[in-house]
């Protein structure tokens, strides 16, 4: 455990001494900020327009504003996570520092978990930025906090899954560009996987649809914590973390 924390701290340090963490945070803050402002503005316009038309149906804050916004975070993170994970192992392999880690009295899984944890913390700090945006809503209304909490749980689970996939892909190459490109492509595939199963109900299509990250995130955005989604993300995470450990091991055999 001590080793995992040591490695995570070292990894996190290098995120924050290089510009990468700041670029990611800035890009995320900007992109989500714009989405947030536009959504809130649209929501208010819609609200006023309806008032003028004399409608008096109850408005659902969460369904109309928060849920799409949580979905937006989920989509943005699909594109930002490859940039978090690309250097995790590729850089160590390129510079030869992997030799230090693999000849130190630490287990391979500790290396993998340390790096995964560091990436999670960076990802978490992106999410914290989005919390500032949501906090603004507190001045205007009293949003339901429980579904938001469920949404953030979903975001963390989804991020953990994507980071473990990215970590694995990073461990297969010594080139960060390759790592980021392949992870990005994998993210895209998992993103569009859902589309396949929308109209096609064949078993394979449903199988592909099951892999859709967004489909499993959607219930969380609605404030729904379902064990099947939690299990999906947790399994997904462990599967790729396990493969990352094996990939590190294979480094010894292939070198």
């Amino acid at each position: 455990m001590r080793n995992i924390l040591t490695l995570a701290t070292k990894e996190l340090r290098s995120f924050f001494v290089s510009p990468i963490a700041y670029i990611l945070i800035a890009v995320f803050a900007l992109v989500f900020g714009i989405f947030f402002a536009v959504s809130v503005e649209n929501f208010i316009r819609f609200f006023l327009a309806r008032g003028q038309m004399g409608g008096n149906m109850p408005m659902d804050h969460h369904e109309m504003l928060l849920r799409p916004l949580l979905g937006t975070i989920s989509t943005i993170s699909l594109f930002l996570i490859p940039m978090i994970t690309m250097r995790l192992f590729a850089e160590e392999k390129r510079s030869g520092t992997i030799e230090l880690l693999l000849t130190s009295p630490i287990h391979d899984y500790e290396i993998v978990l340390g790096k995964w944890l560091a990436a999670m913390v960076l990802y978490g700090s992106l999410l914290v930025i989005s919390l500032f945006d949501f906090a603004i809503l507190l001045f205007m209304s009293t949003p339901e906090w429980k579904p938001i909490l469920a949404g953030y749980l979903g975001l963390l689970l989804q991020g953990g899954a994507m980071i473990s996939l990215g970590a694995f892909l990073s461990s297969t190459t010594r080139n960060q560009i390759v790592a980021v490109a392949v992870t990005f492509f994998a993210s895209l595939s998992l993103w569009v996987a859902e589309a396949v199963s929308v109209f096609n109900t064949a078993a394979w299509a449903r199988g592909v649809g099951y892999l859709s990250i967004l489909a499993h995130f959607e219930p969380f955005a609605r404030g729904l914590i379902q064990s099947k989604d939690v299990i999906f993300f947790v399994t997904f995470t462990f599967f790729w973390l396990f493969l990352t450990v094996r990939s590190l091991e294979s480094l010894r055999w292939r070198a």
Binding site: R2, N3, T6, L7, K10, R13, S14, V17, S18, S95, G96, T97, I98, E99, L100, L101, T103, S104, P105, I106
Partner: peptide, 24 residues
């Protein structure tokens, strides 16, 4: 072990690097 290319993290300071190595 000192490999052919020293396994150094360029973004770390010497002392911090050695402390990290000591910990692992």
């Amino acid at each position: 072990y000192l490999p052919e290319t020293p396994p150094l993290y360029p973004d770390m300071a010497v002392e911090g690097y050695l402390r990290f190595v000591g910990e692992i």
